[in-house]
Simulated assay, not measured.
Amino acid sequence: MTVADVYVEFGAREARDVSPSYERLAYQVASDRELLDRLAGLPEPKRQPNLLFAVVRLLGGPVTDPAGFRAFALERWDEIAAQMLVRATQTNEAGRTAALLPVLAALPQPLALIDVGASAGLCLFPDRYAYRYGARTVGAGLPLLDCTATGFTTPTRLPRVVWRAGLDLNPLDVTDPDDVAWLDALIWPEHTHRRERLRQAVAVARADPPYLVRGDAVTDLPALAAQAPAGATLVVFHTSMVYQLPDPQAFADVVRSLPARWVAVEDPALTGAALPAPPSDALYNVLSLDGVPLAWVRGHGQSVTWFAQDSLT
């Protein structure tokens, strides 16, 4: 797939009906030879639209005006490229916990959680947020996470978490304004509700900063898992992270070797299983438990469409 193809697909499948600004930018970049040539000079994992657009936002550039974006990007490309090389799309979307909750609430309690690719660890607090699945609300407080639930009975309780930890090559610090600014830059321009949600989730995490370990998802996960308390169900989970790994199979082998339940929200291509048709042509991830696909999930946790028949437990 060419760089132009990547941007066309992003515009058509990820940004369409979600972010008109990013849809326009994606198509512009896909047709702009100067920008494509500059992107081609970066390592493949660093060419992704989310990373480019977030860095431009971080540097104060325009992302709602394609002409202004192009001028800014070409004029300050060296600075943009330098930032893209050292940063990653560590989108720490608390809304994704709404997709995790049906599984976490059904597992034997209490839970010990490890988020692999934790960023700032905001997804480590599924027991501290509130959720609204249609007419049913679970939990109290802020943020209140809205999720459209189809094909399953929504949870009636929050999980009981007695230990939580995150693993990341570059963990972000919720008490560091610069790290929080990067998380904000990763939020798409029209998504004011996500920006408010980020502020609320950061407030939760700052009140009880999560235990985050700088390390590799493959080589350092077993040692972190060994720190989990006895008597709790150990759950290793991750959301939209595996695409960044050099060897996803090695990671899967390590997780399967642990005395843990494995919850993932990832690209459907990574399941290796036959799946039913998704609800629409939009981009969906797949929620799975111990490698068994359960449901289609929109990228920010805004909808869960269940297709599995077997019991969660």
Rank of each mutant, 00 (worst) to 15 (best):
F152S: 05
D184I: 02
R195E: 05
R206T: 12
D78L: 06
T271Y: 08
T305V: 15
P189D: 07
P143C: 09
L234F: 08
R38P: 03
A30K: 07
D220E: 10
Q90A: 14
R96K: 11
P45V: 01
E196P: 00
G68L: 10
A282H: 15
V116M: 07
R157A: 15
D115G: 10
V204E: 04
M241V: 14
L283D: 12
F53G: 02
R76L: 00
L51C: 09
V286S: 08
V18N: 14
S240A: 13
F53A: 02
T148S: 12
G121I: 14
P279V: 11
A205P: 06
F125K: 03
V180E: 11
W306H: 09
L287P: 11
W296I: 00
A88P: 00
L101W: 10
E190L: 01
V297E: 01
A277K: 04
S240Y: 10
F125N: 13
A149N: 02
A230T: 15
P248M: 01
P126I: 00
A71K: 13
R87K: 15
V235D: 09
R38H: 12
G61I: 04
A228Y: 12
R298S: 10
Y7G: 04
L124K: 11
R33C: 00
A40N: 06
D216F: 12
S31F: 00
V138F: 05
L258G: 05
A26P: 03
L275P: 13
D17V: 06
S119C: 13
L283I: 04
A99S: 15
H238E: 09
T150W: 00
I114M: 14
P222L: 08
V18C: 01
D17W: 08
V55Y: 07
A4D: 12
D115T: 04
Q28Y: 05
R214P: 03
Q244G: 12
G117V: 09
A205E: 08
D290T: 05
Y129L: 11
L289V: 12
T219E: 14
G60S: 04
D290G: 12
D208I: 02
A308D: 14
D115E: 14
N92R: 06
D247V: 08
A217W: 07
V174M: 03
P62K: 11
L212V: 06
A135V: 06
G60W: 09
A225N: 10
F237A: 02
E14L: 12
R206H: 06
A4M: 04
D32A: 05
A252K: 13
D208L: 12
F152W: 11
F237Y: 13
G117E: 06
P259R: 04
V180G: 06
D176N: 14
R57M: 07
L158E: 07
A201D: 11
G11L: 02
C123A: 13
G299F: 00
P45M: 10
N92A: 08
